[in-house]
Amino acid sequence: MRILLIGEYSLLHNSLKEGLVQLGHEVILAANSDGFKNYPVDLDFEAKWSKFKLINIVRQIIYRLFKYDFATVEYGIRFYFLLPKFKNFDVIQFVNEAPIKTTKKSELFLIKKIFESNKRVFVLSCGADYLNMKFDIENKNKKSILQPFFLNPKLTKEFYPLFEYLKESHKKVHDLVLDKCIGIIATDFDYVAAVNKSSKYSGFIPYPINHTKLMFQQSNIENKIVIFLGINEWSYNQKGIPYFEKALEIIKIKYENRVEIIITKTVPYPVYIDSYNKAHILLDQTFSCDQGYNALEAMAKGKVVFTGAEKEFVQHYNLSERVAVNALPNVDYLVNELSFLIENPEEIIAIGKRARTFVEKEHDYIKIANQYLETWQKA
């Protein structure tokens, strides 16, 4: 099959491509490289002019004053000139319903062009989109990235981009994609409930992880236990970082000579990975029901990850023992869980082993690529 993957989200499409290529398919990944994360792509529509020093200064001023990023215009322009390369694929998959990240009018125009020249287009429910935002607002008590905003509506700066998905200008994009696509695929349990009642719902497929690239290293705890926290300023509250920071302040005092704490702030993806490699424990996020890509990569390396591991996740995989720590937005809870691990280092080793086994079994990139192929062919 000849397959085009449009958009990237935490290396999901990169890993899927690797699995599909292993199975003998031709795959092209077209995406922006997700800003500072700098993900690899085949056809790149990342903004480049907008990052020139003088232009970028003007860009930042305009964004602060009007909440408008003109780099999005450049995404659309670069994507437009790639359109001749996006024809006659057997399958096209969008990483979400707005994979280009350009202005709404341009997104609508460009997506129409994709549908006009390709018959089988699928879309992932992955990250923020219209249905997920609508569901989270209607279910405020369910764990979601919007919960911090419900608790503190003053956090408008960080959450403003999410509420853009509920505006009429975006709903036109959503309606077009929903009408024209063959199917919608949910990528973890944070998205299933929002889309599983849609007539286009094609099921749940876990994230693909190429664990062969990720060396498992059993935790060797001779001296201090190393705890890692990677902060992305753009999702600071969505990830529940304040709860982790407060918990670490307590842990640092309580176990001063027994722990080493590493914190990074908004660094490129390779730097992020290199920074946590020496850690035994990784603090990921508190407002999720399931693990994202970064958490799964760390689990594959044998880390104990504080992330989403709610009941629906445990029940789906029929787990009797923990493969990750279900993180909650509760400082006392986080301190207790960290304290237990620090005082029982053998549990860090045991969870790390189970985490690796879990990723190999449930997220193997070739197994997941086959699930996508079956779903595309059935729909």
Rank of each mutant, 00 (worst) to 15 (best):
Ser198Tyr: 11
Thr264Glu: 04
Pro161Gly: 06
Cys181His: 03
Ser169Arg: 12
Ser235Lys: 10
Ile182Lys: 15
Ala186Trp: 01
Phe150Gly: 09
Gln147Cys: 12
Leu229Ala: 01
Gln238Lys: 13
Pro208Lys: 10
Phe216Lys: 03
Asn220Glu: 15
Ile184Arg: 05
Ala186Asp: 12
Asn152Arg: 13
Gln217Cys: 11
Phe228Gln: 07
Tyr243Glu: 09
Gln147Val: 14
Ala194Lys: 01
His211Asp: 10
Ser198Asn: 15
Ile253His: 08
Gln238Asn: 11
Val173Ile: 15
Leu151Lys: 15
Gly183Glu: 06
Phe150Leu: 11
Asn257Gly: 09
Glu245Thr: 12
Gly230His: 09
Phe150Trp: 06
Gln147His: 06
Pro148Val: 11
Met215Phe: 13
Arg258Ile: 00
Thr212His: 14
Asn152Glu: 12
Gln217Pro: 03
Ala194Leu: 03
Lys246Gly: 01
Ile184Gln: 02
Ala194Arg: 00
Glu245Gln: 10
Tyr255Met: 06
Lys172Pro: 00
Lys254Gly: 04
Ile221Trp: 07
Asn152Cys: 11
Ile209Pro: 10
Leu176Lys: 07
Met215Glu: 15
Ile209His: 09
Val173Ala: 05
Glu222Lys: 14
Ser169Lys: 13
Tyr207Asn: 13
Val259Met: 07
Lys213Phe: 10
Leu155Ser: 07
Val192Ala: 04
Thr212Phe: 11
Val192Leu: 10
Val173Lys: 03
Ser198Ile: 06
Phe149Gln: 08
Ile262Thr: 05
His211Ala: 11
Lys213Ile: 03
Phe244Asn: 01
Lys167Asn: 13
Ile262Cys: 04
Tyr201His: 08
Phe216Thr: 00
Val226Asp: 02
Gly183Asp: 03
Tyr201Pro: 09
Lys197Met: 09
Ile263Ala: 01
Ile225Trp: 00
Lys180Asn: 06
Cys181Ser: 15
Arg258Asn: 14
Gly240Leu: 05
Lys167Ala: 11
Ala193Trp: 13
Asp190Pro: 02
Lys224Pro: 08
Phe150Tyr: 14
Cys181Gly: 05
Ile241Gly: 02
Glu158Thr: 10
Glu164Gln: 14
Lys172Trp: 08
Tyr243Pro: 00
Gly203Gln: 03
Gly230Val: 05
Phe204Val: 10
Tyr191Thr: 01
Ala194Asp: 08
Phe159Val: 12
Thr187Lys: 09
Leu162Gly: 01
Asp179His: 12
Gln217Asp: 09
Tyr201Gly: 08
Pro208Val: 05
His211Tyr: 15
Val173Gly: 02
Leu214Asp: 06
Ala193Ile: 00
Thr266Glu: 10
Thr156Met: 10
Met215Asp: 12
Ala193Cys: 05
Ile262Arg: 05
Ile262His: 06
Asp190Asn: 14
Leu166Trp: 08
Ile263Cys: 04
Gln238His: 12
Leu176Gln: 07
Asn210Lys: 11
Phe244Arg: 02
Lys239Trp: 08
Lys224Phe: 02
Asn257Glu: 15
Ile225Glu: 03
Ile253Met: 08
Val195Met: 00
Asp190Cys: 02
Pro242Thr: 09
Ile231Pro: 02
Ile225Tyr: 01
Leu155Asp: 07
Ser198Trp: 05
Gln218Ile: 10
